[in-house]
């Protein structure tokens, strides 16, 4: 069962998470920011699965199912907000929404 060392799986999850984090920090398009958040959620889910596999418990998969439900709720609200922001500012630039009313 020592086929794939757990460290490699965690390094992979770490690399994917950092990629998503860089995407959130670098891109200014709202859709790209949402996609990068999805990448980060997926990477953390991968870490949960790997931990659950290491100890042979189903808890990691249960946690992934919770992450999945959370991602679905997050992305539905987030995309509705993207639509609203596009109607408001006529662009998807996140920096356009830097001013408050009043």
């Amino acid at each position: 069962m020592a086929a794939v060392p757990m460290e490699h799986v965690f390094v992979l999850a770490w690399v994917l998470f950092i990629t998503g984090l860089v995407g959130v920090l670098v891109r200014r398009n709202l859709l790209f920011i949402l996609m990068s958040v999805e990448i980060m959620l997926n990477a953390s889910g991968l870490a949960f699965i790997a931990a659950g596999f290491k100890w042979g418990q189903p808890d990691g998969q249960v946690m992934f199912i919770f992450i999945l439900a959370m991602a679905a709720a997050e992305v539905s609200v987030g995309l509705a907000l993207v639509l609203l922001a596009y109607r408001q500012f006529r662009s998807l630039d996140a920096d356009q929404a830097s001013r408050m009313r009043g």
Partner: peptide
């Protein structure tokens, strides 16, 4: 809790879409 969260997401996105 996940079901409550999904319900909140449903209501929230419905509200945002309706206000559009």
């Amino acid at each position: 809790l996940a079901s409550v969260l999904l319900l909140a997401g449903l209501v929230g996105s419905f509200h945002l879409g309706r206000s559009v």
